[in-house]
Amino acid sequence: MRSEGQHRGLLLRSFALLYVGLLILLPIFAVGVKTFSTSPARVLHELFTPVALASLRLTILTAFAMVAVNVVTGTATAWVLVRYRFPGRKVLDSLVDLPFAIPTVVTGIMLAALYGPRSVVGRVLGRYGIEMVYSRVGIVLALLFVTFPFVVRSVQPVLMAWEKEAEEAAQTLGASPFQVFAKVILPALRPSILTGAALSFSRALGEFGSIVVLAGNIPFKTQVAAVYVYGEMESSNLEGALGVSLALLLFSFLILLLLNLLQRWSHRYE
């Protein structure tokens, strides 16, 4: 006979499954159904138009550029926050989360105000040929801003729980400070850095607000996938929107899969 507790457990589990199913899986399913109820061939055709492919390519390239910067700056920031005590450390620590709190459209406006051609910074950069507004560099900048917390926040707890004795052991075995970092600390941080990287990458795939404000919507130049999808919906081209959406969805799944595999691989020694 089942106890009351077991009944409650069963109920809770069923509810959790149902909720996740309705909230998350059902919409994904709906996109699939929609594709097949219109015309899968048209959807595919729309996906392979040069402008759609260009938007996807741009999205992925800028996301990669952002990730490359983020893994370094994010890890360094976490390192500074954990390893050093200095005035303003707590302020810096709470500032890290700010990009999550600010609406991304506002982020776009802030960045445009700072780097716009009429601002001081914008003019100085312009003199060196660097354009932030309506440019791809601007997209990377906006992505860096909105995804900044991911790597920091995934690396930080690992560093905090880290026992320094392994570093000392490496030192007594002859390792230089750089070797200690490269051979002992970095391998231990790798799983958390990868997690942060994957999360910021998937976040970048869907970024809309800050990019549309800072970089605009210029096909083949600054039009990213999410902005393209929105444009197609606006102009009632459902198939066009569906094609790129499905591609984005596929990427997201791949990243999730990759993340899981990476995590399993890096936890093999735990």
């Binding site: 026992e163 004795e165 392994a166 391998p187 020694y269």
Partner: peptide, 8 residues
């Protein structure tokens, strides 16, 4: 506490 390298 041994201080072994866990990843090796």
């Amino acid at each position: 506490n041994y201080a072994l390298f866990k990843h090796l």
